[in-house]
Design a protein around this nucleic acid. Structure first.
Lengths: 114, 114
DNA sequence: TTTGTATATCGCAATATTACGATTAATATT
DNA sequence: AATATTAATCGTAATATTGCGATATACAAA
């Protein structure tokens, strides 16, 4: 076996490129988009209802929440038997900054040559 | 077998949520981020050098280009024996609009309750 | 202390993604 | 025509992701 296949070769890219990809990846699934939109809508961060709101099983939602928490985009705190999740606003801004810088590259120079 | 496993249940999400996820997914790999940045930098869209510029094999780059082309973010045209790729500016703006709407959700109401 | 409720984790099945060698296709050069 | 160059496609190997049933854990209520 010469090569670790199926694995992204992150080491050949810059930290910036890998960071953009990490943030983008977490939005790359509609369930996580839906979770974040729901957390934005309910500014009070009641959360167990994510399962009934979105039509996925509880372990599946829990796994998506874990990925969002791992990147720091959401925070969770135990509230009795249930867990209260909400957006981590500082991290959200940090992420927005990084993605905007990429999305808003100067496109005016592009000659549209094709 | 009760369920198509390993497959995202896109049918339970809105078109908007799926669209956001599709665009984000394409940035979810550093190679595609690098390709787009390179296309932005060289406003003349000479392209065969993407392979030497980024350290991945030619079939791998070709596959990533295909995904970007499938979403419409880049265009390609044959130029002799080589192929010239460039950013599709209209589609880029369309994508930016959709992602910005998601990223710029009103965060001011968030109570940061956790 | 038993029972219920809510969430996380484990384990598994199935599809998706990443990467590349080998080959093909299409044009350029000799 | 024969050869070289460039990029796409095929086939395959290996890891990643998605989803969920079963189970574990942690706290609340009876």
């Amino acid at each position: 076996m010469k090569q670790k296949m199926g694995l992204a070769k992150t080491e050949i890219f810059s930290d910036q490129q890998n960071e953009i990809a990490s943030f983008a990846k977490v939005f790359g699934h509609p369930a996580r988009v839906a979770i974040l939109q729901h957390l934005f809508k309910l500014n009070t961060c009641v959360c167990g209802d994510l399962v009934s709101e979105i039509g996925l099983a509880q372990p599946t939602i829990s796994q998506h929440l874990k990925e969002l928490k791992l990147l720091g985009l959401i925070k969770g705190s135990v509230e009795g038997t249930s867990v209260c999740y909400c957006i981590n606003t500082e991290k959200w801004h940090e992420m927005k900054e990084i993605l905007n810088q990429f999305l808003n590259q100067d496109i005016s120079k592009q000659g549209d040559c094709c």
